[in-house]
Design a protein around this nucleic acid. Structure first.
Lengths: 139, 139
DNA sequence: ATGGCTGCAAACACTTTGCATCGGC
DNA sequence: GCCGATGCAAAGTGTTTGCAGCCAT
């Protein structure tokens, strides 16, 4: 999904319209990973001044529902977005929140060398279905 | 830190006042882990009707700064709080957000048995310092 | 008694929604 | 031409802040 065209066609496949706003936003998201909604909006406005922030949020939501975009809240009060690509991890700066991508499999020495980050902590979160939700999903 | 008294004395140690509001909130946080600010506020109001939500947030912030409480945003738009105790992981329900604690070390079969959850995904996040922040921290 | 803490309400930041209009299909 | 998508503004959430009075220390 590094290709804007592929993302655009997944809109068509879902019966969604390809408006100029969406085409522009897709391009921005592909080319500027890890940005938040406001940043995406600002970049978009430089090419299309009348585009609204609501459109950015609505488009991001649609793309997320299509499974094409992933949103992430990394300890901050707002989300950052990126196109789903190969699976990878994020390395977050504990002070400023700056993000680096880490390919799998992980070699911590290589991570340190490649990113310049000092890794101080790891957070692991397991996601699944609790018994009640698993039961409901069975129906 | 399973003991409310220990938490209260860490307030004193930091030169903070032990008000009845704080004593109450500490008790609630120790006895009801994983609650969010609104839930904590509701529980608190049953014992102290005039306590304000702002006080809940301010107290949580103070306790977090003391390193006694930990806040967590698990894919939702608000935080949940718990007293820092032994290190453990969280298992989040992908549908309803229900939380289960997982002791370390991890045995996934044992996790499934003990919690009843079906684990479908793991999120690993590495935290550290980016080069710029590491440089600033050196001064 | 004094400075930190509280309740209350207003302010904030991010995100969502209502509605009239526009334009892709 | 229809119906989904947009821009704008207003509403909604969760959280923070300003301020006058209160009360642990």
């Amino acid at each position: 999904m590094r290709d804007p065209a592929a993302v655009r066609s997944s809109l068509a496949a879902a019966g969604k319209r390809l408006t100029p706003e969406r085409a522009l936003l897709v391009d921005i998201i592909v080319r500027h990973p890890h940005r938040d909604a406001t940043e995406i909006h600002q970049i978009a406005r430089s090419k299309r001044p009348r585009i609204g922030l609501a459109t950015v949020y609505r488009t991001l939501r649609v793309l997320e529902e299509l499974g094409v975009v992933e949103s992430r809240r990394l300890g901050e009060d707002h989300s950052h977005y990126e196109v789903r690509d190969r699976e990878h991890l994020h390395l977050v700066c504990a002070v400023c929140g700056a993000l680096a991508d880490i390919p799998l499999p992980i070699d911590l020495h290589e991570v340190a060398r490649a990113t310049g980050y000092t890794v101080t902590r790891a957070r692991l979160e397991l996601v699944g279905l609790c018994p009640a939700c698993a039961r409901k999903a069975d129906r």
